[in-house]
Amino acid sequence: MPNRVYLLRGNHESKYCTSVYGFEKEVLTKYGESGKHVYRKCLGCFEGLPLASIIAGKVYTAHGGLFRGTVVTPSKRSKKKNRKVVHNPAVNSLILGSLEELAKARRSVLDPPWEGPNLIPGDILWSDPSMSPGLSPNTERGIGLLWGPDCTEEFLKKFNLKLIIRSHEGPDARDKRSDLEGMDVGYTIDHLVESGKLITLFSAPDYPQFQATEERFRNKGAYIILEPPHFDTPIFHSFCYPPRPKVNPYYDFEDVIDSDEELDLVSMVPDSGVQLPTA
């Protein structure tokens, strides 16, 4: 057994997702008069969770994946005070973010924004890999990025890393994508580049728990063991789902949603009053 457990934040650790997917209702139901207090404490915990980690200087781990950097456009003068910082750059000017920018990002947000100056949390929690080169907006989700194998290579090489391990896409999400492998065994190797690998790891078997159909994916879950001294050679372990007792969900899954792609992310930013970007 491990001596320590480190938790990273996922895209569902937000006020909006915990409300939509039934966590808030479950807490209020189970804890009665103390429910609101317990729920607020949970949200405070989610705000404080790290967005990413570096293991042994060789493995970058995050729920969604990579993130954009801040584009600095210098004026004709070379003085720093005349530089213009662009927070929502055009698609053709998107650049990969740095670990320094990640360290400075403000992670204490209940719902990661999809516009404005603090985009790194949303990118890390909601982004997905792609087989197309470059960085582009993740229009399917309405938040985060898509990044190609060239970006994986650039990130690994620049920061002397060997692996990127992320999650975020279960069998339901991968079933809708033709460019990447399915999640039948609980993991996929999405990018194999000169400097290392990008791995998607999904540890929930027979996902999702509640669906508006009797059809199941029957996927296996998986976990990875990284052994010393280098911690950069993944050992994969897949496992089957155990018999599951019949329980009722704490949200109306038939009328709400079956996947993250159907979320109304405008509601995730309080009083936004704007439409989601389409490009």
Rank of each mutant, 00 (worst) to 15 (best):
M1S: 07
N3I: 02
N3Y: 03
N3Q: 05
V5Q: 00
Y6K: 07
Y6G: 00
N11L: 12
E13C: 07
S14K: 08
K15E: 15
Y16N: 12
Y16T: 12
T18I: 07
Y21K: 14
G22P: 08
V27M: 06
L28V: 01
L28F: 01
K30S: 02
Y31M: 01
E33I: 05
G35S: 08
K36Y: 09
Y39R: 06
Y39G: 01
R40D: 11
R40N: 11
C42A: 13
C45F: 11
F46I: 08
F46A: 07
E47K: 14
G48Y: 10
L49S: 08
P50M: 06
P50S: 04
L51M: 07
A52G: 05
S53P: 00
I55Q: 00
A56L: 00
G57L: 04
K58Q: 11
T61W: 03
T61M: 14
G64S: 08
R68D: 06
K76Q: 11
S78P: 03
K79V: 14
K79L: 15
K80Y: 14
K81L: 12
N82I: 07
V85Y: 13
V86F: 08
H87E: 09
N88F: 04
N88Y: 04
N88A: 04
P89R: 11
N92G: 06
G97K: 09
G97N: 04
E100Q: 12
E100G: 04
E101G: 05
A103G: 02
P117D: 13
L119P: 01
P121T: 10
P121V: 12
D128M: 10
P129F: 14
S130G: 09
G134I: 10
P137Y: 13
N138I: 08
T139W: 00
E140V: 14
I143S: 12
G148L: 13
P149E: 12
C151H: 13
F155Y: 07
L156K: 12
K158P: 00
N160D: 15
L161A: 05
L163C: 08
I165H: 01
R166L: 06
S167P: 09
S167Y: 04
G170F: 06
G170T: 08
P171W: 02
D172Q: 13
D175E: 13
K176E: 15
D179P: 04
L180P: 00
E181Y: 03
E181D: 14
G182T: 08
G182N: 08
V185W: 03
G186L: 09
Y187T: 03
Y187D: 05
I189C: 02
I189H: 03
H191F: 11
V193S: 12
V193C: 10
V193W: 10
E194R: 15
S195C: 09
T200C: 13
L201K: 03
A204M: 09
D206S: 10
E214R: 10
R216I: 02
R216P: 01
K220N: 03
G221P: 03
G221R: 05
I224G: 05
E227K: 13
P229N: 02
H230Q: 09
H230K: 11
H230T: 15
F231E: 00
F231G: 00
T233L: 11
P234G: 03
F239W: 05
F239K: 06
C240E: 12
P243K: 13
R244T: 13
R244G: 00
P245G: 00
K246H: 02
V247C: 04
V247F: 03
F253K: 07
V256W: 08
D258Q: 15
S259N: 14
D260T: 14
D260Y: 15
D260F: 15
E262L: 15
P270H: 01
D271R: 14
P277E: 13
